[in-house]
Design a protein around this nucleic acid. Structure first.
Length: 571
RNA sequence: UGGGGGAUCGUCUAACGGUAGGACAACGGACUCUGACUCCGUUUAUCUAGGUUCGAAUCCUAGUCCCCCAGCCA
């Protein structure tokens, strides 16, 4: 959908800012903290940040908000870049908040000089006491009145490493009585004698999010800084930082960056908040995803059951489907829990159009065509895609002994069953109509069906037009290739695993049947494919050759999603 | 009377004082060599109460409910 037709509240703002001349070009940024993998929830932010910039001929930066070295890791820096690219986006400029540490420091000194910040010696516990509560105002820190000289001296000594972690902070001097707790003299810098993944041992003080993020946006000339709802009441602080430092009006503060060849593009950004993306039957918080991985409840960050982008990719979802999904939801400020069926519909739509068809049997039942000679063999040409001739054809070997899906036969059929029954007829996909003459059983278990193929119903013959109620898929037993097929289902049994109001947590709601592995039989043309090849196994669903484990010698497929099944949902 | 946000079909979302529309879901039906796809149809919504207006989801007033905030996390 184009920028002309999409009209969410953020696009309206952007459009207005462009037409009013407030901006002649827009600049956004996607600012992940490199402390975990990207997940489905980030897709909306990525789509908004990169997509809106793209639509309005602007640009988007990828900026790592790496201001807390204690919990960040370069492993994530690479993975995040890979995921963003996989989703189909690219950035104008790759930045790190840590690129700006010199500027942040200069900005902090300016704040001190202007009387807008002070060094506070209160401990973390004391700060909490002084902060007040949601309904009671806080009290001024006893250090709030320090002179500019003393503040400057202390701050420089903080930087020089003279003090221990937690001994002092640099605080904004705003309003300890504000109803907005973020404005009660928030910390701007804290002491952390921790090496940084990017800057090594250069710093032992690190800026806080509110300060660093606001200035980072200002430095990069971000026009529209999009973020989620929980930052709404940080906006006054965001604006305070931008305005009090005023990088655009004090370009000398940017000198360290200009010296390194970065462009001068400081401006005044506007923060706009939208609601997070939540999807039912899953969890999206980094903390919970981390726990699932670390406790071995799933098989790593790219487990196909996880909503991580890595997991979703391995599951077989396509970037186009993900983009279509978030686009369908749009942007708003309402808290929401999206039904996973919207996601499934988006993948099915994409895969129906793009995935070639093959036949596979997941739960085999032998079927013998008794009126075919022993050793009978032929190849039958099948279209690779019912709606796309350009996808070409493939040869499918056919013989006297076949595997069919066990659930496509019922000895005592329920009403409405369209498939094979004793004495009944069904069409074998691409072959013709067969009649079930005999059911071979071992005790209660059906072990083989002996059938006859009506030669007049082979494709091309007049009888081929005869109508039968059902068509089933099959593979030639002699030619079938064994494959490992992983059948995935939702990770949680309940729609809202985050809801622990009844005392039960997401851990209690794990779906024990979220993964089932079977040995399946594939037609030969399904086997010799590259990892990440997506196929529809007819009448079963969409499957992907596993990105890591699949090879033609040892085929491994993951079920991305089943086909829509109006019969099964009725039964 | 702490501050900040939000309330439209079951779930998302549109409307910018002028026919409450779309998607997903559900339910019927048509088509079908995939019980898929496609097509057609149906059901279901403006938080409440007042007010302004020829006309209100939209504007005003008063309520109700839900979400976020008391990290030296982001």
């Amino acid at each position: 959908m184009s920028g002309e037709t999409r009209n969410d509240f953020i696009r309206q703002i952007v459009r207005d800012d462009l037409s009013s001349g407030k901006h002649d070009r827009i600049q956004t940024r996607f600012p992940p903290e490199p402390n975990g993998y990207l997940h489905l929830g980030h897709t909306r932010a990525i789509w908004a940040d990169f997509g809106i910039a793209q639509e309005f001929n602007g640009a988007c930066n990828l900026r790592f908000d790496d201001t807390n070295p204690a919990r960040e890791d370069p492993e994530y820096v690479q993975a995040i870049q890979d995921d963003v690219r996989w989703l189909g986006y690219d950035w104008r400029s790759l930045r790190h908040a840590s690129d700006y540490f010199d500027v942040y420091y200069l900005a902090a000194e300016k704040l001190i000089l202007d009387g807008n910040a002070y060094v506070c010696d209160l401990s973390a516990d004391q700060v909490r006491e002084y902060r007040g509560t949601l309904t009671e105002p806080g009290r001024d820190s006893p250090f709030r009145g320090r002179s500019v000289e003393e503040n400057l001296d202390l701050f420089r000594r903080m930087r020089a490493g003279e003090f221990a972690d937690g001994a002092r902070t640099l605080r904004a001097r705003i309003d300890m009585a504000s109803g907005n707790i973020n404005l009660r003299d928030p910390a701007l810098y804290r002491i952390k004698h921790v090496p940084h993944q990017n800057t090594g041992d250069a710093w032992c003080i690190y800026p806080m999010y509110d300060f660093a993020h606001a200035l980072g946006d200002a430095i990069e000339g971000i026009t529209h800084s999009l973020c989620t709802l929980e930052f709404e009441d940080h906006r006054p602080l965001y604006d305070w930082c931008v305005d009090k430092v005023d990088l655009a009006g004090n370009p000398q503060l940017l000198q360290p960056l200009l010296d390194r060849g970065l462009p001068l593009e400081a401006g005044k950004p506007r923060q706009i908040e939208f609601s997070r993306l939540n999807v039912n039957y899953t969890v999206m918080s980094k903390r919970k995803l981390m726990a699932l991985v670390q406790e071995g409840l799933v098989d790593g960050w790219d487990d196909p059951r996880l909503p991580t982008l890595q997991g979703i990719r391995r599951r077989g979802y396509t970037p186009a489907a993900l983009r279509a999904f978030v686009e369908r939801l749009g942007l708003s400020k309402q808290n929401s829990l999206i039904d996973f069926s919207v996601l499934e519909a988006a993948v099915r739509e994409d895969l129906d159009a793009s995935a070639q068809r093959r036949m596979a049997v997941l739960d085999p039942l032998g079927l013998v065509l008794t009126n075919l000679p022993e050793g009978h063999g032929e190849v039958v040409a099948f279209a690779n895609h019912p709606k796309d001739e350009a996808a070409g054809q493939r040869d499918v070997p056919f013989s006297r002994e076949l595997w069919i899906e066990r659930e496509d036969f019922m000895e005592q059929p329920v009403k409405g069953f369209h498939r094979l029954v004793p004495g009944g007829e069904v069409r074998l996909r691409g072959i013709g109509i067969v009649r079930c003459d005999e059911v071979v059983k071992d005790g209660d278990r059906v072990v083989e069906l002996r059938c006859s193929l009506d030669p007049e119903t082979r494709p091309g013959r007049e009888g081929a037009n005869r109508k039968v109620k059902g068509t089933i898929h099959w593979v030639s037993a002699r030619h079938a290739v064994a494959a490992e097929v992983r059948l995935y289902d939702r990770l949680f049994k309940v729609p809202d695993p985050d809801d622990d109001s009844d005392g039960r947590t997401y851990r209690d709601h794990l779906n024990p049947e979220s993964r089932r592995t079977v040995q399946a039989w594939l037609e030969p043309a399904a086997v010799d494919v590259a990892p990440e090849t997506r196929l529809q196994f007819e009448r079963l669903g969409y499957f992907v050759a596993d990105r890591k484990d699949h090879s033609p010698q040892k085929p491994v497929f993951n079920r991305t999603v089943t086909l829509r099944d109006t019969w099964a949902t009725r039964a």
